[in-house]
Amino acid sequence: MNAPAYNFAYLDEQTKRMIRRAILKAIAIPGYQVPFASREMPMPYGWGTGGVQVTAAILGPQDVLKVIDQGSDDTTNAISIRKFFGKTAGVATTTSTTDATVIQTRHRIPEAPLHAGQVLVYQVPIPEPLRFLEPRETETRRMHALGEYGLMHVKLYEDIARFGHIATSYAYPVKVNARYVMDPSPTPKFDNPKMDNCPALQLFGAGREKRIYAIPPHTDVVSLDFEDHPFTRYRFDAPCALCGAGDSYLDEIVTDDKGSRMFVCSDTDYCESRQLAGHRGSESAPPHKERAHG
């Protein structure tokens, strides 16, 4: 009986080769969804099988890996994926955004600015931005090919007609490199501006849907909008209750069963490093109303 021997970073080399080819193609055509032969991973679909495969394919022994889930380094998903690569690749892991070379993320882009040489890997549940408007995949692919994106504005129109403003607050569609309309995975639209002209490479992996797409460094990423209803990033109208940051994306934390809650940075690394640097918040913030910032 031989002990099970895993290849470096779990996937076999031929699979990695296949994924790398898809990644290279995705980088060559920014925003285009490249099909790839997604593998079964030792975790359920929806837990980041696409992101894990992309990470496995690009990881080298010298890399330093950070994994976040909703901005946090210490949620179940983040911890298990970090452990997974710690065990199967033996790479160094970190929670620091600046120290990491590969950051796998679900739902957030870190607050600290990314720098050249870093790779941000997104876990994507639904890669097709037109999915809920046009259910036929054959048709949506044709629409992408011909650049027919009027339908995307139909969705935004519906938002305004129904709510008076563009109410889409996550998975907000963007146009990449003035060509392909792309779903930035369910990141809050607060993070959309960070994708534009980002010095880091951004890779998107959808395991169940078997698609990989990419935004190369320093690529134009424009959030779709109307002239008279321009794109706005919204933010809760309060500083972080723990570190006092006024510019970060906040999570609402319920603190008891009497309706008390506080707003804290969703990016735990950002919050902790600010607290280490001596920044303080009010600890317990009164409830605040959500309102859009112009």
């Binding site: 009027g150 504005h153 519906e158 305004i160 002239e227």
Partner: peptide
Amino acid sequence: LRMAVSAGANVGERLMAVGWNHYGRIR
């Protein structure tokens, strides 16, 4: 028709497809 989106968006879809980008004017 697109049965799930509003009448206004149904009429406006072609305009948006040819590049109209002003909600007020489309409406």
